[in-house]
Lab assay of single mutants.
Amino acid sequence: AEKTGIVNVSSSLNVREGASTSSKVIGSLSGNTKVTIVGEEGAFYKIEYKGSHGYVAKEYIKDIKDE
């Protein structure tokens, strides 16, 4: 049951290796980017990222929809 969301930041949002603010940053997404959410862990969504997965803070994702 995948969902999509939109990155809701003015600059960019860090994509992390794990569901923690201390996890390594593996990339970033600019505002209004559409993401595919494959799961959630605590305050983070697990998303599809560059052929693999990454984690982003839930508070910066809006317009969550079921695909």
Rank of each mutant, 00 (worst) to 15 (best):
I6K: 07
E59K: 10
E41M: 11
E17M: 12
A1E: 13
G39N: 05
Y49R: 01
I47C: 01
A57K: 15
S28H: 14
K50D: 10
L29A: 02
R16E: 01
A43R: 08
T21H: 11
T33E: 09
V35M: 02
D66A: 10
T33F: 06
V56C: 03
H53N: 05
N8E: 09
V15Q: 00
G54D: 00
L13T: 09
T21E: 12
Y55R: 00
N8C: 08
G5I: 04
A43F: 11
K62D: 11
G18R: 12
G18E: 15
L29R: 01
T4P: 04
V38Q: 07
Y45F: 10
V38H: 05
S28Y: 11
I6C: 08
S10H: 15
S10W: 06
Y49S: 01
I64S: 06
V9M: 08
I61N: 01
V56F: 01
V15S: 01
N32Y: 09
S28L: 15
K65V: 13
E59W: 08
S12A: 10
Y60K: 06
V56G: 01
E41K: 07
V56Q: 00
V38D: 02
A43G: 15
E59I: 15
R16H: 15
K50I: 06
S11G: 15
E17Q: 11
T36A: 08
E2M: 15
N8R: 11
I64A: 08
S12M: 12
G54R: 02
E67I: 12
H53G: 04
G31Q: 10
V35A: 02
V25Q: 04
I26D: 00
V9I: 12
K58I: 06
T36W: 13
A57H: 09
S11R: 09
G39H: 04
D63V: 15
G54M: 03
K3D: 03
N14R: 10
V9T: 15
A57S: 13
K34L: 14
L13W: 03
K58N: 02
S20F: 08
K65F: 08
S22V: 11
A57W: 10
S28K: 15
E67F: 04
G39Y: 04
I26Q: 02
K3G: 05
V35C: 04
S52V: 12
K65Y: 12
G51T: 08
E40D: 08
N8Q: 10
E67Y: 03
E67C: 06
A57F: 12
G18H: 14
G31T: 11
S52K: 11
F44E: 01
D66E: 12
S11Q: 15
G39L: 04
V15T: 01
E67N: 15
L29C: 03
A43Y: 08
G39W: 04
K58L: 03
G51Y: 08
T21Y: 12
E17N: 10
T4D: 04
S30W: 14
F44R: 01
Y49A: 01
R16W: 15
K24L: 09
Y60T: 05
K46L: 11
V35N: 00
G39F: 04
E2H: 10
N14I: 15
V9P: 08
Y60S: 10
S12H: 15
K50Y: 14
E2Y: 07
E17P: 01
K50V: 08
V9C: 07
V35R: 00
V25G: 03
N8W: 05
I47H: 00
A43M: 14
I64T: 08
S30K: 15
Y60N: 12
K3S: 07
S11C: 08
I64V: 15
V25W: 05
V15H: 00
G42F: 06
A43D: 12
K34E: 07
L29H: 01
A1P: 11
K58D: 01
H53R: 05
E2D: 10
S12W: 10
N32G: 14
S30L: 12
K24Y: 05
S12V: 14
S30Y: 15
A1K: 06
T21K: 14
L13Y: 03
V38R: 05
E17Y: 08
L13Q: 03
A57G: 08
S22P: 03
F44K: 01
T36K: 13
I37D: 00
E67G: 10
Y49L: 03
I26M: 06
K34M: 09
G51F: 07
V38N: 04
E67P: 10
V15K: 00
G5K: 04
D66C: 07
I47K: 00
Y45G: 00
V9S: 09
R16I: 05
K58H: 03
N32A: 10
H53C: 05
E67W: 03
A57D: 12
H53I: 13
T33Y: 07
S23T: 08
Y60A: 13
T21D: 15
V15G: 00
I47L: 02
S22W: 08
H53M: 09
N32H: 15
Y49N: 01
K50T: 05
G42A: 07
A1L: 13
V56A: 04
E59M: 15
N8I: 11
G39K: 04
D66M: 08
V7N: 02
A1R: 05
N32E: 11
V25R: 05
V7A: 05
E2T: 11
I61D: 01
G51V: 04
G54N: 01
V15N: 00
E2C: 11
Y55A: 00
E40F: 06
E48F: 09
K3A: 06
Y60W: 09
I6N: 04
I47M: 02
T36G: 05
G54F: 03
R16S: 07
S11V: 13
D66F: 07
K62E: 09
N32C: 06
G5P: 02
A1D: 10
I47T: 01
N32R: 09
E2G: 13
Y55F: 13
G18W: 14
